[in-house]
């Protein structure tokens, strides 16, 4: 097992080890509706991250007594496959996965019209197939697409990104090495149209000014991710939409 050495994460030109500028996102590609059984699904690749999300619901709650009389339940399970990380991760849920399942659920819930399907549940299953830093925010971005794909009523999508601190400066979308060797990480999720923050966490050290700057960096990146989310959903369904003229029709 290799000890994490002090790595210089920025070169003289302010470029990161993978060549990115400080405010640059890794390449991102989303595909919607990739699973047959799930009501909705999405697959995302962000840099080397590969994450698959399945949504089942609205469906009946089991055990029945957990159903809420006036709204739907939202359940979320974030899990990493054992081979997703360099050192095999044991299959049983870690405390980190338990916490992330909660914060991801709380990042998605504000966007959903939960009163629409009382006494049902919508279950979001996230599997990280390959991890390279910022997996929780990448999961959120894919989960929102899966929820939309499942036909869940929402007031907005949710997209998320992390802002890290490397060699003393803020950097957008930190990868695994940058997260490990950097001085801080701040994952942020937002509803892009409404401009509201549904997830914010941090570790490491940030000044007040850095928090303000991080929020602005995240806001811009989230708008870019939102475009990719819309593109993925449109592409999936546009192929099977015939050309339409404005006649009275029954859908």
């Amino acid at each position: 097992m290799v000890e994490a050495k002090r790595v210089k994460l920025l070169d003289e030109n302010g470029r990161r080890l993978d060549g990115r500028r400080l405010d640059e996102l890794r390449s991102c590609r989303i595909e919607a509706g990739v699973l047959k059984n799930a009501n909705g699904s999405a697959y995302i690749e962000l840099g080397r991250n590969k994450i698959l999300v399945a949504v089942y619901g609205p469906r009946e709650v089991h055990p029945r007594h957990e159903a809420m009389p006036d709204r739907m339940l939202l359940r979320c399970r974030y899990s990493m496959l054992p081979f997703s990380v360099p050192d095999r991760k044991t299959p049983s849920p870690s405390r980190r996965e338990v916490e992330l399942s909660k914060v991801i659920r709380e990042a998605l819930e504000p966007a959903i019209f939960v009163e629409e399907f009382p006494r049902t549940t919508v279950d979001v299953y996230i599997e990280v197939i390959e991890a390279d830093g910022s997996t929780r925010v990448t999961s959120i971005t894919a989960a929102a697409v899966a929820l939309a794909d499942a036909g869940i009523p929402m007031r907005d999508l949710v997209a998320a990104v992390s802002v890290g601190k490397i060699d003393g400066v803020l950097a957008l979308d930190v990868n695994g090495l940058e997260d490990q060797c950097g001085e801080g990480d701040m994952p942020i999720a937002m509803m892009p149209r409404l401009g509201e923050i549904t997830l914010i966490q941090s570790d490491g050290l940030f000044t007040r000014e850095e928090v303000i700057e991080a929020l602005e960096m995240a806001r811009k990146a989230i708008q870019e991710l939102y475009k990719e989310q819309k593109r993925a959903l449109r592409e999936k369904y546009s192929k099977i939409v015939e050309e339409v003229e404005s006649e009275e029709v029954i859908g």
């Binding site: 966007a111 939309a148 869940i152 009523p153 929402m154 007031r155 907005d156 999508l157 509803m191 149209r193 409404l194 989310q229 819309k230 959903l233 449109r234 369904y237 546009s238 939409v241 015939e242 050309e243 339409v244 003229e245 404005s246």
Partner: peptide
């Protein structure tokens, strides 16, 4: 426009 796929929350 007709035939456009719209996502939840889209104007």
């Amino acid at each position: 426009s007709s035939g456009q796929v719209v996502v939840p929350g889209e104007l």
